[in-house]
Design a binder for these strands. Structure first.
Lengths: 218, 218
DNA sequence: AGTCTTTTGAGAGTTACTGTCATTTGACAG
DNA sequence: CTGTCAAATGACAGTAACTCTCAAAAGACT
């Protein structure tokens, strides 16, 4: 599973898939769960900022959020997951699959990335910066970013495979997904280490330009 | 530190850097250490093969190698490191830096990769296959491959920076290193999952061809 | 043979997780 | 409003990967 529980299956293709996943049926019991999840995350980030990621224990986080450690692990499989998981993968996938099949894949990615990031910028810029900064600075998190099941690389591979309508991806698809995944990660991390000040669209452009050029001149 | 202790600094540029690091001054005390390291690794791989990576504890490995757990951790910083560290990074770096500066970087990489792998093939094919297979199959290892300090990505970034004769790498260098690192990893892993039967040169060729083409047609 | 340094092992402690079970809490029917 | 059921929680015990400290053992060199 690459995301936190989607609570409801997506019924039909929404016009703007990035916005779409944000309105949930919002059951009654679910509100509490959501609030708990948010509280835990918020307290965790606060403690991370004060003491650093590695000096903060799960126990401390749980205490600060007023839940038991058991509960912490029911919400987040690992301490890393608290930082690394996000809810946007399915939206990315949908958006990418909605692109015309004859569009060069790099171009699709460029467009979707830009749109995605702009949305995030409006809604949770600060949290995104904090998270990505943590990822660059904590080796364990940087590594965790590449776990097979929720990495950008895996996301792109999924899309490429589905787009081609095949079961198993070809080697060329794997290589492509690896390259794009690595490169987009680099872009986002760079943007975050600059405090989110840099023009993200420009960054994405430079990144994909390099890929599309086949690295001439370097 | 990206490698196991080199025991002696490289005195001068060797004709074949890949071969070079293999003859050590071979001190007297060092032999025992080397033997211990090899024994631990060998026993570990044996146990991994029998029971799997995750079902094998460090304690078991230490027992099988007839050392204490303390000693295990003196030789390998983590259980992952046992699988992930290798001695070839410095050789790769040297080889890459010896390439003509005006050669396109992708071409340098392609050449050095091929040479490197051919050497490994002759000397430790089976171990390489086993290791890379483990890496593909165990999520923790796959993630560990990307820890900032010993990843292929970091290696390529080092070379690009030094080659340009600057202190801090540019963003373009970072992106390039990320892409090449991801893609070469993919090639090696694919080769290993095929049991090392596939033609590695051909695989490398396909991989770099894709990168050089800027992914036209995908 | 004696001294000095490096390597080793023993043991205690921390922390991220896992699994189990009893208790609580919200959902819903009547 | 009450009783019933399922889901969420907390308390607790256990495992395994590390970390630190210190004393014993072993190689190096005089």
């Amino acid at each position: 599973m690459t995301t936190e529980q989607p609570t409801a299956a997506l019924p039909d293709a929404p016009t703007n898939p990035v916005q779409a996943l944000l309105e949930a049926p919002l059951s009654l019991r679910e509100r509490k769960k959501l609030k708990t999840r948010q509280t835990v995350r918020r307290e965790a980030y606060r403690l991370f900022a004060e003491q650093g990621y590695e000096n903060t224990t799960v126990e401390q986080i749980a205490a600060a959020a007023e839940v038991s450690p058991s509960t912490f692990f029911r919400y987040f499989a690992t301490k890393e997951d608290l930082v690394l998981t996000d809810e946007y993968d399915p939206a990315m996938i949908t958006a990418l699959l909605e692109r015309p099949t004859d569009e060069p894949f790099l171009q699709s990615c460029r467009a979707v990335m830009t749109g995605m990031i702009h949305h995030l910028l409006e809604h949770e810029r600060q949290e995104l910066v904090t998270r990505m900064r943590l990822v660059t600075e904590v080796p364990a998190l940087r590594a965790g970013l590449h776990r097979a099941d929720n990495s950008p690389q895996e996301l792109f591979l999924t899309v490429l495979t589905r787009r081609a309508g095949v079961e198993e991806p070809t080697y060329e698809m794997r290589v492509t997904a690896a390259a794009i995944g690595a490169v987009t990660t680099e872009a986002v991390l760079r943007w975050a280490t600059g405090g989110g000040q840099e023009d993200i669209a420009g960054l994405v452009d430079r990144t994909f330009a390099l890929l599309e050029s086949g690295f001439v001149g370097v």
